[in-house]
């Protein structure tokens, strides 16, 4: 049996003595305790995040590291070289297109499917079935996605066969190997494998919108379209902005999908900042230049992260 003991409030001299200033190891321990609890996390953060980032920034200011025994500081020369490299400009353009279109399509598709799954017109079992089907692309790892779509988009693959039978194309289209279609093709693959993340989050948001808002709107004579624009979208806005910013940050860093489908080619039409950096490091062994490119990507990501954090704080 538990017993509750109430300690009487301390009064008299003993209480005054306890509050008297002087050396108090107990208080020091108490004030240190929270920091000691934090220590393992702080140590891990320093070892796994701060230290590598500082090292990479340091590398970016050297002439070449790792492959050169005696590196020397070159100031900002590497930054000038990377920023003036035409392939870097191509990589930025491609990354912006790839990311922008992906995020927009993720949002539109995710919202459309979430609305479908939240609709009162679809039965419970049908909803469960569609939810499972729609979420499937998200469950595949990028390696599987890349292999799958390489096979599907092969000139002799299923996609060309179906389009040919349907009369949309005449002959074999080299979706990933043609410089005119490759960037659109990899963007399409990224859209396909990324929209479920939006869909799941927006579905949760839709389910959290109070029903009485829609009822009030209907009483005021609002049509379904007006309800969508004046109730649904404003209610989802915080989620949409958070998701879009996060997706933008993640998609700018997409590497595996590009590397395993096109390798940045044909020529350099699918070259992204990530593949550009990888090639500098592991193909040219120019680790300082790769560090420079990585630092530039870090800065760009931090700008996006700043907006994301600011948005979250405003929400809170």
């Amino acid at each position: 049996m538990s017993q509750l003991t109430l300690r009487p409030a301390e009064t008299g001299d003993g209480g005054r003595d306890a509050r008297r200033p002087g050396p108090r190891p107990g208080r020091l321990r108490r004030s240190l305790t929270p920091y000691l609890y934090l220590l393992p996390t702080v140590l891990l953060l320093v070892a796994l995040m701060v230290l590598p980032i500082v090292m990479v920034i340091g590398y970016s200011l050297m002439d070449n590291v790792i492959t050169t025994r005696n590196s020397e500081s070159v100031g900002l020369d590497n930054y000038v070289e990377v920023v003036t490299d035409p392939v870097f400009h191509t990589a930025i353009r491609n990354t912006l297109y790839f990311t922008g279109v992906s995020v927009l399509a993720h949002l539109v598709l995710g919202l459309a499917f979430a609305l479908l799954l939240n609709s009162a017109f679809v039965g419970r079992w049908a909803k469960a079935l569609f939810r499972m089907i729609y979420v499937l692309p998200w469950l595949f790892t990028i390696a599987i996605v890349a292999v799958l779509w390489r096979l599907l988009l092969n000139p002799n693959g299923v996609v060309n066969y179906l389009l040919d039978v349907a009369g949309f194309i005449d002959g074999n289209v080299e979706w990933l190997a043609d410089p005119d279609t490759a960037l659109h093709a990899v963007t399409f693959i990224n859209i396909w494998c990324g929209y479920p993340f939006f869909m799941i989050s927006l579905l949760a948001g839709l389910q959290g919108i109070p029903k009485d808002l829609y009822e009030a709107a209907r009483v005021d004579g609002a049509s379904a379209v007006k309800q969508f624009w004046h109730v649904t979208i404003p209610q989802l806005k915080p989620i949409i902005i958070s998701m879009a910013l996060l997706d933008f940050i993640w998609t700018t860093q997409q590497f595996a999908l590009i590397w395993m489908t096109t390798g940045g080619g044909p020529i350099n039409v699918t070259e992204m900042l990530s593949t550009f950096t990888y090639k500098l490091a592991f193909s040219k062994y120019e680790f300082s230049m790769a560090s420079t490119s990585a630092v530039i990507i870090l800065v760009l990501s931090m700008v996006l992260a700043f907006f994301y954090v600011r948005h979250q704080r405003v929400r809170d």
Binding site: G26, R29, R30, T33, L39, P40, L43
Partner: peptide, 20 residues
Amino acid sequence: IARRRVFAVLGASAIALTAA
């Protein structure tokens, strides 16, 4: 209790450091 907590935290930190 406070002393025990301090030692526990220190011990955990040492393990984390050793692991790292």
